[in-house]
């Protein structure tokens, strides 16, 4: 079985390359969207007097996470076809992954900003920074490591969920898995599973590096692992 899988890999490198690219493309688009919206929402709900909005948003995002991906694809197909948009393939999968990616990013952004030492904020305000300057020059740089950790979590998690996107025709490394299930081809399932796992591990390492790079130098030493 392992041997067959290996045979498949060396005889069809082009296919594996294609699936991996599709997979990466979905992840890239979905997580870029999730990062932009997640960080913006996180910043918004961390504002003064928005405690209740914050609780609600994080609650909703948590519920989102409990919806099984297959069910979510189904729901999205319904909505998208009602809007006369493509209801299978790339679009519903990207939307679903964006939604899944939001929670860790919103939650980490929110927590990181809320947990910036109040003394830092008061120092900024006392020296004459406007609220926007406090956000951009004090809160965000200090929150970056935690926000990046959230993004990393979202990416790794979505690489797994994206495999199921093949079921509704989005391509990617889920394709050999589903094909293998349909045709009793364990080797194909293995190929898909192994490459999805490899991708997840590589992405985790890469995001870890990115987390390190984007952390301001002065706070790095404290977080060195």
């Amino acid at each position: 079985m392992w041997n067959q899988a290996w045979q498949y890999v060396i005889s069809h490198p082009d296919k594996i390359f294609e699936w991996t690219l599709q997979h990466l493309y979905i992840i890239l688009v979905a997580n870029a969207l999730a990062a932009v919206f997640g960080v913006l929402i996180g910043i918004y709900i961390s504002g003064k007097g928005r405690q209740r909005i914050a609780d609600t948003v994080i609650y909703l995002a948590s519920i989102m996470m409990t919806v099984p991906s297959l069910a979510l694809y189904g729901i999205l197909m319904g909505i998208l076809s009602a809007l006369t948009l493509p209801s299978i393939g790339f679009l519903p999968v990207v939307i679903a992954l964006t939604l899944y990616g939001l929670l860790p990013i919103i939650r980490n952004t929110y927590t990181a900003i809320r947990e910036v030492d109040p003394a830092m904020i008061e120092a900024g305000r006392g020296m004459g920074m406007s609220e926007i300057q406090i956000l951009v020059k004090v809160k965000l740089p200090l929150a970056v490591p935690v926000i990046m950790a959230g993004l990393r979590q979202a990416v790794v998690m979505n690489i797994g969920i994206a495999a199921i996107g093949a079921y509704i025709g989005a391509g990617g490394l889920g394709q050999p898995i589903f094909r293998g299930i349909a045709n009793y081809r364990t080797d194909l399932i293995l190929v898909g599973a192994i490459f999805v796992s490899l991708l997840a591990i590589l992405a985790d390492l890469l995001m870890g590096g990115l987390e390190w790079l984007t952390t301001p130098k002065g706070v790095r030493t404290r977080r060195r692992r």
Partner: peptide, 22 residues
């Protein structure tokens, strides 16, 4: 208020330097 504060030097309790800045 911000103009006022930029004209008054402020030394915060427990130093309060920004760790991410040189």
């Amino acid at each position: 208020s911000n103009e006022l504060r930029r004209g008054i030097g402020y030394a915060i309790q427990n130093i309060g330097l920004f760790p991410h800045l040189t």
